[in-house]
Design a protein around this nucleic acid. Structure first.
Lengths: 251, 251
DNA sequence: AAGTGGTCTAGACCACTCG
DNA sequence: GAGTGGTCTAGACCACTTG
């Protein structure tokens, strides 16, 4: 705490400077799991900010799950681990990159097409609307990991075929060329066994266990923007999730 | 908006009264997906609260995923669905209850025991510390759905065997007798096939697809409090997750 | 009694978006 | 230029926890 001096000329908000400083102290071990964070009043006094600003810094850490508050007692560092690879909205390329594996793709199809009923409903398409379909075998370090079939509404990406190399990261291309940020995805996972065709593409034996995923990705507004069906080798994949209590207020 | 009058004598915070009122309007269709919420200033003026209080109500809706803000434009109702059955920290009983199924259990074991290395590490036990082990076949409407083996640190629940009927909901009992609220869980899912023993207990054929879950549940402080290994019939279970972009600040 | 977080006020300035 | 959300201030009262 002692060493931090705030930059009041910076465009970076004060509460964010404070949050980052506290985060550094947690990572460095200066603030240990279970130990109390500096109180709102203490931060306010020491750094010469208002209590509301100090509070905003602490609350942002709570909403990240890094800390938790107890009325009348204080705010404490959570023992919950930060660095885990939780399943987030992540493309195959991003996920492999984070794991330190080299992602690559074998493109099976990349075309404009008519949507199936399932795709139509998931993407909220109007009658007659077309899609872009991209079917790939995805590999990590040259090992086939999954078969992935992505469906995008054509109207959002009319010139994707010219702009995008299907060997590369789709999410990156969507961000770069269309300014699209995926914020949310709903995903259904099923445990199943490989069909003959899947087995061949994934180089496993037929009826070996596979994960089947059905994922719909959304913009912040709730607009569905991508629908993906995929099959992952069961022997090489695990799904790690962090589950929390929430939505009590919604019910 | 027009009809709401705040109860300033209530113990319910003003921002929460406003949040609930807005939530009602969204559910009733008065505020549609994509349409703008009343602005901070508008809420403040109409209800006679400060802008910060109005803001807190709107921000709480954003953090629930119900709305989203755009600087300079306004706050809008998200098209993201509320009512979904996302995977949360939920016991088998809670999950079945929410689905409208009747949960029941066949108890295979309920005993004090020595932990395996895996359990010891997951629960952060000290040398020599014992656990309670509860192994059950869980049924929904009389159909076997999964085999579940729960491990609890004995030191937190020394008298659980006397207080708890293993046919009933464990989470409810932990809350009632020990004031314990589980807030968070990390879960690993794997796609696999049933062993001979599992097949017999679940009344499926051997090598039929199953989900395997390994779950560690935590208190808000990060203290691990429960470790569960389970196997679910693949033909009767799906895992539904809502994934979000986060943790950018952590990296 | 002292310290904590939870809520609330009445202002302020800013950057942004849109007509 | 008018309206919006993002940030910030300097106070205030409250309920709660702990010594």
């Amino acid at each position: 705490m002692g060493t931090l001096t705030l930059d009041r000329q910076s465009v970076v908000p004060l509460y964010y400077q404070i949050q980052q400083s506290l985060l550094r102290q947690i990572r460095s071990g200066e603030l240990m799991a279970g130990s109390p964070m500096p109180s709102e009043q203490e931060i306010a006094t020491r750094l010469g900010v208002s209590r509301m600003t100090a509070r905003q810094a602490l609350k942002s850490l709570c909403s990240l799950g890094v800390a938790y508050s107890q009325r009348g007692k204080g705010t404490f560092v959570s023992a919950v681990k930060l660095e885990k690879n939780f399943r987030q909205v992540m493309s195959f390329s991003e996920e492999m990159g984070q794991r330190g594996s080299q992602p690559s793709s074998r493109v099976l199809r990349f075309e404009k097409a008519e949507p199936s009923e399932e795709v139509k409903e998931a993407l909220g398409l109007i009658a007659g609307e077309k899609i872009i379909r991209l079917k790939r075998v995805r590999l990590a370090d040259s090992i086939s990991l999954c078969i992935e079939c992505t469906h995008l509404p054509l109207r959002f990406f009319p010139d994707l075929p010219e702009k995008y190399d299907p060997q590369t990261s789709l999410y990156q291309a969507l961000g770069k060329h269309y300014g699209i940020q995926i914020e949310l995805a709903d995903e259904v996972a099923e445990a199943s066994v490989a069909t003959a065709e899947e087995a061949k593409l994934l180089k496993i034996r037929a009826k070996a266990p596979v994960f089947r995923f059905t994922r719909t990705a959304f913009l912040r507004s709730g607009q569905p923007i991508e629908f993906v069906k995929s099959a992952y080798r069961g022997d090489r994949c695990r799904v790690v999730n962090r589950l929390s209590r929430q939505m009590k207020q919604l019910v």
